[in-house]
Design a protein around this nucleic acid. Structure first.
Length: 649
RNA sequence: GGGUCCGUAGCCCAGUCCGGAUUAAGGCGCCGGCCUUCGGAGCCGGAGACCGGGGGUUCAAAUCCCCUCGGACCCGCCA
């Protein structure tokens, strides 16, 4: 017998047994949806019910007595996976699995389904776009943002494994002030040939330019505000001080480029105006020279970003340029439609979207988890110079995505919660209710450096490239040390698999909602509770399989009687339902935890019991088959989070 | 000022949505063991937490409710 969800079969058997027994005792009760849960300890069985506490209260019977009655009414022989039911504690009903059968079904299923084991298919397959990373094409991806591609890629893998049709999209944010700034600096420097990796060099130009511009802007403001309140002036001076010290820092590191830029920018009187006009002209697409300039800079930077992503095996199906939507007038059309809804108003020189009014009139606050008296801030749609803002452009972009998919998952930092909400409300206001409902903001916290926040504008960041290189270098040291006889080619390959695996694991194991503080030690530790530990366990298991090549047909699973073997079978049998939970609730961190737990059990088993030399032979075969099943589940779970399982390391 | 989220051993982190059972699960670090058996990136043992604090609901609270303290983020004509 092969089952796509062995533990699910056991769960259903327990639930059926339970409800039949209850209905037999109390025919008037409908006991259909009884949940059974995994108890704290295996000695209480594999599933347990607390139904007698609730029911006992309702019926005014002691829970213990009721539990005993229910237990008495369960015919275990009707359910092959159920060995025993017992009352325990103050009225728990504990279900003990028949491990001879559960082991057999589980191991056979894992071996038979192999690469598909655990990936239970949804009965409602959808087309899903996972938009992730979408890093600004003006600087390299830094470690602060690095959770995004890794979580996004994991989500895409998980949803695809669930049977959905998944497209991975990268939104290239080439419209906006930041690209105008870098293009301005690049132009001022005479469009210099790039040194090193293009995103790193463009990133440097961006940082330097934006620093010079910021200082210039602050000096002008201080001049203007000379006679205003001391508070404002004070604040401006503080900002100027901060930027001046950043400038000193940058000048020290890049004296030549910085000096060159400073000299060139000094030629212009109205820097702000030049940057704004670059922004406006790029957005409208009116000036072909500007179009080319900004596009070129973004493309250069994006080439570097693509290289970074390809290096960690994160791939995309589509690169969506934001400018497409301003150039083809999708944005202006949406603005017209939005104006017609009546939820748009003018506030001084700018145009605003009244998100609050939409939420109130459609009574959406509760559904969106907001307090009734919370007033949702309005969203600025157009600047005074009539250029659009990021979220404005996101409206037509989102609708475009919905032409291709029923569900859109935006993997973006938590800090974008409000704009994502405003976006949803804008779709609602436009009458695109299904799209608004199908838009999911997968918010995550950032990776922070101890002491300060990473900032591209301030040039304070550690690039993902650096971290990846360092991870691989450290893995290489380990490989040299532990497998000196391995071929150069193999060493290179394994170092990459281990180094990148460790990095991915470190960023995926923590609940996305919580921040991760970056330390080299944390992200690149090859000790337990990390990808290398799981990978090592996998390699060990593979090693056993290479040596134990006997046929498995006479395996006797009823000989797997050790508690640790039951633990292992239990974990293997649960993988499919863990996967379903992960996929339905978008919780990739659970997969990391599950794989670690399985590796942990396997290592303990490995040190305690022989496999190949186990006696009698049918036991050896059963263990061998179980080890094979362990490799299947370890590999399949790592696969979901984008980590490679190496057969040797 | 308003809003959202987080707070579990020296450090990191699971469990919180859907409240339950004994010793609240792990990892790092620390202390003590294990290289003649399938790979020591490993295994075994030990010390270390009354789950930020205070109330409440309940037969039962890390988990639900209220208050409070600490931290992060948002409330931009940035993205």
């Amino acid at each position: 017998m092969v089952s796509s969800n062995p533990f699910g079969e056991f769960r259903q058997a327990c639930q059926a047994a339970l409800s039949e027994a209850i209905e037999a005792l109390y025919p008037s009760l409908s006991a259909e949806y009884l949940s059974v849960e995994i108890p704290a300890n295996m000695i209480f069985g594999q599933l347990a019910s607390t139904v007698s506490f609730d029911l006992g209260r309702k019926l005014k019977v002691s829970p213990q007595k009721l539990a005993a009655q229910i237990c008495g009414g369960i015919e275990t022989e009707n359910y092959s996976l159920l060995r025993d039911v017992e009352v325990a504690g103050g009225g728990y009903i504990n279900f003990h699995a028949n491990f001879a059968d559960l082991s057999k079904v589980t191991v056979n299923s894992a071996l038979a389904l192999d690469a598909a084991y655990g990936y239970v298919k949804t009965d409602k397959p959808e087309t899903v776009i996972v938009e992730h990373t979408s890093a600004n094409p003006i600087s390299p991806i830094n470690i602060g943002q690095a959770r995004n591609p890794i979580l996004g890629d994991a989500l895409a893998r998980i949803l695809a494994a669930r049977g959905h049709t998944v497209f991975r999209h990268f939104y290239v944010d080439d419209v906006g002030r930041q690209t105008a700034v870098v293009a301005y600096g690049y132009k001022k420097l005479g469009e210099p040939p790039l040194k090193g990796k293009p995103d790193h060099y463009i990133g440097l130009i961006y940082t330097l330019t934006s620093c010079v511009i910021e200082i210039n802007r602050l000096k002008h403001r201080i001049e203007q505000e000379k006679n205003s309140t001391s508070d404002t002036l004070e604040q401006l001076r503080r900002h100027l001080d901060e930027w001046t010290s950043i400038a000193t820092e940058l000048e020290k590191k890049h004296p030549k480029l910085f000096g060159q830029l400073l000299k060139k920018i000094a030629e212009d009187d109205d820097i702000e105006g030049l940057v704004s006009s670059l922004n406006l002209n790029y957005e409208t697409g009116a000036d072909s020279a500007v179009k080319k300039l900004v596009r070129d800079v973004c493309k250069l930077s994006l080439d570097g970003i693509k290289e970074t992503l390809a290096n960690i095996e994160v791939v995309f199906d589509s690169w969506d340029w934001e400018s497409t939507f301003t150039w083809n007038s999708s944005v202006s059309k949406i603005l017209e439609r939005l104006k017609a809804t009546g939820y748009v108003f003018e506030k001084g020189p700018v145009l605003e979207f009244d998100a609050e009014k939409v939420a109130a009139e459609f009574k959406l606050k509760q559904a969106f988890g907001l307090k009734e008296d919370y007033e949702i801030p309005s969203l600025t749609l157009l600047r005074a110079d009539s250029t659009t803002l990021y979220t404005t452009r996101d409206i037509p972009y989102s609708l475009w995505k919905f032409e291709k998919a029923e569900k859109v998952i935006n993997v973006i930092g938590m800090e974008q919660r409000l704009p994502q909400l405003q976006l949803k409300l804008a779709l609602w206001a436009l009458g695109h209710v299904n799209q608004a409902k199908g838009l999911i903001h997968f918010g995550h916290n950032l990776v922070t450096l101890p002491g300060y926040k990473m900032s591209s504008r301030r040039g304070r960041y550690i690039t993902l490239d650096e971290v990846v290189a360092e991870a691989i270098r450290r893995a290489r040291d380990e490989v040299e040390h532990r497998s000196p006889t391995m071929s150069e080619d193999q060493k290179h390959k394994i170092s990459r698999i281990v180094g990148i695996g460790a990095l991915k694991y470190a960023l995926i194991e923590v609940d996305p909602i919580k921040p991760v503080v970056f330390t080299w030690d944390r992200v690149i530790n090859f000790e337990r509770n990390s990808a290398p530990y799981i990978q090592y366990s996998y390699a060990r298991a593979c090693s056993i399989l290479r040596k134990g090549t006997k046929k498995l047909n006479e395996a006797n699973y009823s000989l797997l009687v050790e508690p640790l073997e039951h633990d292992l079978v239990f974990a293997l049998s649960r993988f499919p339902e863990v996967f379903v939970d992960v996929a339905e609730n978008l919780k990739p961190s659970i997969v990391a935890d599950f794989a670690n737990g399985l590796a942990d059990k396997f290592n303990r088993f490995y040190s305690l019991f022989p496999v190949i030399k186990a006696q009698p032979e049918p036991l050896s075969k059963a263990r061998l088959a179980m080890v094979k099943a362990i490799t299947v589940v370890l590999r399949n779970s790592l696969e979901l989070i984008g980590i490679v399982a190496p057969e040797k390391m």
